[in-house]
């Protein structure tokens, strides 16, 4: 019996939670399958939660906001202040974009914290797509606004001509690495956090299989899981915030000829 339980616990697969399953198959597009997956389902849930929350809480339209309306208003003001501080008042034209991005990542992270739920942002496909969207906006808007003057972003002044090519190459690499760091940071944080949680939780099972002595030992990983859960919720907020504030700063690059 005990051995069975141990074997059961050993079979806990910390990666299993990230499996993509297709829920509704639409056939194939070219060579790749085209389906409504669990990832897509949770993205849809995320959007529904955000829109639903915003609509329901602001329905009263109280001049003096109620408790829930306050939450929405604080979230709005927080995002607006963040954008204004990083990109100036002119940056407010990107407010809908930044607000959407911020709320999507935040809510997706938090929904991922619910047991048995799928964490959308733990897949680099999602975070990479979001980061590339940001960069496409920065480059597109930068060129539209400054024309080829935007390329001055890569050319520092006061640099001797001899080392200019190298500096420009480094600057370009630095720019290209932005979406990489943006997407990897979010994805790695969510992935690593959820795997750690799962691994420590499986320790509880393994130790618990050893009987009374094991139950005593299982308290330690249990405390760890409790602490990690709190940490993961903090990380969920933090990574959404970091993604959003970096988006604001990159948008500032595209926006501001005179800061």
């Amino acid at each position: 019996m005990a051995n069975e339980a141990i074997a059961q616990a050993d079979r806990v697969d910390p990666i299993h939670q990230f499996h993509i399953n297709s829920l509704v198959d639409f056939g194939r597009v070219g060579d790749s399958p085209f389906a409504f997956t669990n990832s897509a389902l949770f993205m849809a849930i995320t959007v529904v939660v955000i829109v639903g929350f915003m609509l329901l809480t602001t329905r009263g339209r109280g001049l003096v906001p109620g408790r829930m309306q306050s939450v929405t208003e604080i979230f709005y003001e927080f995002t607006a202040n963040m954008l204004r501080e990083a990109a100036g008042t002119e940056g407010m034209r990107f407010f809908p974009f930044v607000f959407t991005l911020f709320s999507f990542i935040l809510v997706a992270n938090l929904i991922g914290m619910v047991p048995y739920f799928f964490t959308v942002t733990a897949h680099i496909v999602i975070t990479g797509a979001l980061a590339l969207l940001v960069m496409a906006l920065v480059v597109g808007f930068g060129f539209a606004k400054h024309g080829f003057g935007f390329l001055k972003l890569f050319v520092p002044d006061d640099v001797p001509a001899a080392i200019m090519p190298m500096i420009v190459a480094i600057e370009i690499l630095s720019f290209v690495s932005r979406p990489v760091s943006l997407s990897i940071r979010l994805f790695a944080n969510m992935l690593a956090g959820h795997i750690t949680l799962k691994v420590f939780a499986s320790f509880i099972l393994s130790l618990g299989a050893f009987g009374v002595l094991g139950w005593g030992g299982a308290i330690l990983p249990f405390l760890m899981v409790v602490a990690l859960t709190a940490l993961e919720i903090l990380v969920a907020f933090l990574q959404a915030y970091v993604f959003a504030i970096l988006t604001c700063m990159y948008l500032n690059d595209a926006l501001h000829p005179s800061h």
């Binding site: 501080e85 890569f154 520092p156 500032n252 501001h256 000829p257 005179s258 800061h259």
Partner: peptide
């Protein structure tokens, strides 16, 4: 300095972000 500061015409000390 951030690269966008270079796009600035006058470089005398905009406040750092």
């Amino acid at each position: 300095a951030e690269p966008d500061d270079r796009l600035a015409k006058n470089k005398d000390g905009g406040p750092s972000r």
